[in-house]
């Protein structure tokens, strides 16, 4: 880490960190838009009605909840049943 700081341009490093984070955000927005479009969108109308908009907002919230739930549960099973690879091969 220290070694890298001495050779790499700190301004550039900072820039890459910020842009990477922005990109992760954007990527997830692309993904969730696609998933929620399937769940929420009927026939595209002249405007996005409020019912559909609420569906999209809920869809985003539940998608993130699901992702966190799965992560937590995997962590739990890993802790109680030993290593991941063991529980996978059972």
């Amino acid at each position: 880490m220290e070694n890298q700081g001495a050779t790499a341009d700190p301004q550039l490093q900072q820039f890459i960190e910020v842009e990477s984070q922005k990109q992760r955000f954007q990527q997830l927005v692309h993904q969730m838009t696609e998933v929620c479009w399937e769940k929420c969108m009927d026939k595209p109308g002249p405007k996005l009605d409020s019912r559909t908009e609420v569906c999209f907002v809920n869809c985003v919230e539940r998608f993130i909840d699901t992702s966190q739930f799965i992560l937590n549960r995997l962590e739990q099973t890993q802790r109680t049943r030993g290593t991941f690879s063991e529980s996978m091969s059972e």
Partner: peptide, 16 residues
Amino acid sequence: RYMDAWNTVSRAYNSR
């Protein structure tokens, strides 16, 4: 509508 949806999702994710 896809653009609307994209922006709605972006706002919802951001506020989360």
